[in-house]
Simulated assay, not measured.
Amino acid sequence: MSTFVSVFSGAGGLDIGLKRAGWDCLYATDFDKHAVETLNLNAAAGRVDGIIRQADIRDLTGDQMLSDMGKRRGDIALLAGGPPCQSWSSAGHQLGFNDPRGRLFEDYLRVAKELDVRWLVFENVRGLITARGSDGVPGTALAAIRQALFSAGWQTRVELFNAANYGVPQRRVRVVLIGYRTGDEPPVPDASHSEGSEPGKSSWVSIAEALAAIAPLGVDEIIRPSGKLALELETIPAGSGVKSPGKRETTRPGGHWGYKQGAFVADLKRPARTVTANAQQDWIRDPLHGLRRLSPRECAALQTFPADWVFAGKRVDQYRQIGNAVPPLLAERIGVALRGHVHRQASAPSFAPVFIAPLPDRLQAAIDYTTREHRRNGASRMAAPSLRKTSRQQLAG
């Protein structure tokens, strides 16, 4: 019974990983035309199975999806896919449920109930951990999501994954929420890599290692800086970037500061920073081509997409699809742990949850920290959302 339906499928990163782990995708859907075209291009080459639909999840019904698949309620084991992350991202305005995209979770949950799946796998940005709900209190957005799932009969396990700890050449930190019936909690994968030399673990995979495994770039893939930016980047050492001005706060007279978007020079000896969903990717000093921006194909390698995976659209569309994706290697590790649980426990218990499982101490500590920060520096932090750095460090630590 290792079947799943994929919603908000994007370029297929989560689906690729689950398929490698032995799961069978019967239905994949996304609203974005370029993402659906990407899935169709790869389906034509035999790399994608199942039904592919371009649709708004608000227009989908579980009954119609089941009819299309020739299945009945309860036949599908897993609903995979995370609603768009921009509503919760620290790089955005963090409008949460006030952003229409933040309400798409309600349709995600509706489809899950209509399909009557056994498990949910929900991926989102780490900002969801401390995101504010309708009351403006940090952490209550996640609490509301968990309460909605609890009321619908799913218990939830929330974990924070650094993809680099699972062999992905990228320091990408994301929240993964796994919904399950009480008594049916699956395990999460143990980290296989570490930054240092932990016994039994491999070292993090570097950018250089990842890029060495793909074919050389063509001339049309080389993007060089120009104008003022070229001059600014000239003296920037690897692993650093052009700083943005800080904003003073009550408890931080020196202010918060960060790196300007699109003005960071990556260190080839380390995993990449998070591959983003826009064209302002990091720069590298290529021994052959000099200072240049990471290309879409290289970003796909840093995300661990297969080398033959085809992306539709213009360069900006490809960057968006790649940056929004779940790294297939991380998805595979999660899928293997979940599928192993399927074989150990063939059916789900029928009793309802009686209380919501607590968050891991580390995640609750991050919420508590952000709450204190909100009381001390709330006004200035809300005025400069792009400078929210400290709570992200707390989560990543």
Rank of each mutant, 00 (worst) to 15 (best):
G82R: 05
R248D: 13
A337S: 15
G127F: 02
S226G: 14
A346C: 00
E332M: 15
P189V: 11
L329H: 11
A379C: 00
S202Y: 02
I57W: 07
I52Y: 12
R273I: 04
C85D: 02
R73D: 08
A277M: 04
V275H: 02
D135V: 13
A45V: 06
G12K: 03
L359P: 11
L18N: 09
A300G: 04
P189D: 11
A277W: 01
A272M: 07
S226H: 06
G81W: 10
S240C: 00
D107F: 12
Q280C: 05
F4C: 11
A266Y: 02
L79T: 05
K389V: 15
G12M: 12
T235R: 07
K33T: 14
I207V: 14
I145S: 06
S197I: 10
G335W: 04
E373V: 13
V219M: 06
C25R: 08
L387A: 12
L142Q: 07
G290E: 05
A365W: 05
D24R: 13
L211T: 04
G340M: 01
R375P: 01
A210T: 04
K243D: 00
A277S: 15
V175F: 09
D220N: 15
I223D: 13
S206M: 05
S203T: 09
S67E: 13
R320H: 11
A131P: 01
P100A: 11
S386V: 02
R388D: 03
G136P: 06
V242G: 07
I222E: 13
R375G: 07
R174M: 07
P253Y: 12
P189L: 06
Y369T: 14
F4A: 07
K243F: 00
A213W: 01
